[in-house]
Amino acid sequence: MTTQNDPITAPAQTLEASQTIVSLRGVSRVYGEGETEVRALDKIDLDLGTGEFIVLLGPSGSGKTTLLNVIGGIDSATSGTVSIDQQDLAGLKPRQLTEFRRNHVAFIFQFYNLVPTLTALENVELIAGLTGGGKTESIEALAAVGLGEHLDRFPSALSGGQQQRVAIARALAKNSPLFLCDEPTGALDQESGTQVLDLLQQLNRDQKRTLIIVTHDESIASRASRVIRMLDGRIVSDTHQ
């Protein structure tokens, strides 16, 4: 049930600009135990505001994808608190967590994760429908990423860059305030990568979406308003630019 007093299930549009949308306090994420224990995140404290364009930089294994997943509610912290719009994710039941993801976050993955047996439009519609979106929004989203002519194509008939743009349209049609992008250009050539980053930057600038991009590509950092560097599960620098 959606109520105005429930920040988790409330429509995403209720979030105001300049608010702190993400707040992490003492967040650790540990995999395994004993000799096989891996501390992917180690006591992270972090506040992210709405409308920010944040780049998480760091080498492989530094914990940046884990941090993104914890913020997106698809992985859970072993300790510490993760608050999204002042709501602690740790206190949410699985169903509430699903609703949180449905209403507040949109993912863009390195390997796009499109459904291969659905067309570009159906891939977008499938996710748009979750938050009450319709065909119109889906077509508009695809048009906005420059794929208005490729609505009925299946993913295997699209280039990597086009597939990633379908993934962005999918996130866009969902109308979520928080975009979580895991190496969105990692599988693309330079030209396609640049187009995708332009698109994401435009979304951040024009629609004030909070954008968190995980990458190990230093060149992407220049586009961001804030660059957070990680190493061995810790934040080693946090620079506003």
């Binding site: 519609e125 748009a128 429908g129 009450g132 065909k135 929004e137």
Partner: peptide, 23 residues
Amino acid sequence: MSASPVPTGAILRSKLRRDLRTR
């Protein structure tokens, strides 16, 4: 917001149909 939300069930049925055709 659209007046007619997309029925995700219908799209999942398309997926189901095509998945079965693929296999």
